[in-house]
Amino acid sequence: MAVTDAGRLRKNRGAAPLQTLLWRWPWVRPALLLTPPLAWFVLVYLTSLVLLLITAFWTIDTFTTQIVQVWNLDNFRIILTEPAYRLIIGRTVGIAALVTVTDGLLAFPFAYYMAKVASRRTQTILFAAVLLPLWASYLARVYAWILILNHSGILNWSLQSIGLPPANIGYTNTAMWLVFSYIWLPFMIIPTYAALERVPDSLLEAAADLGARRWRAVLDIVVPLAIPGVVAGSIFTFSLTLGDYITPILVGGAGSTFIGNVVYIGAFEAL
């Protein structure tokens, strides 16, 4: 048998060399498969980041905006010693964390209802309600919030018509927190829902059989099993808020500068 196989192999080598090659060296197949994406990753993605990092050790002649290629640590010293930059970093991280917590608290009950309580039909409707806003432009949704929150907006108009003083939260950090929480909510709901849906109902039934009340079952079984989904959602909402610069420009007020805005302004000097 072995001899025949070897003979067939030798004969095949002439007919389909590539196939033989792949059979001989099994690592060739994954290598061929991975080379293009890996090359792209290293050349386009990593190289550009490394180049940017190198630039951080150079300075710019801000008058002519030409880069001066002299190695120094000035940029890092400024970031660490200038109180304004620490304030901006603190504000950005703080609001990103607040948005993540807010979205987590809003998304969990919503996702739980979708995954465990709602009927199939309601589930579809809720899914559409969560995903549909993502099809509308980011800018359109932010501008909609400006219309709601500004001085003569719907919020103040509603408050005044029921006899309450106006809220005046347009162009403040509160406005940014609201808008960010709204914009990124779907990115928290979807992974949380995906995690909750995989929690077997039998576990809840077993808990009930053993005398656990509903909330105890949720706390001890559902929450721990849903954590990977919540963490995935948190990474989305946190990092998306951290890097954003459009919402601070549009709905932020005086003193709403984010890291992204400083990068945006700095980019005109450096690029």
């Binding site: 002649d61 801000t62 008058f63 200038e82 109180p83 304004a84 930059y85 304030l87 901006i88 005086a254 003193g255 500068t257 400083v262 302004i265 000097e269």
Partner: peptide, 14 residues
């Protein structure tokens, strides 16, 4: 010079 104007502006509006 203008470079310092830019830097100061960042600290004013931060």
């Amino acid at each position: 010079p203008y470079a310092q104007w830019q830097a100061a502006w960042t600290t004013i509006t931060a």
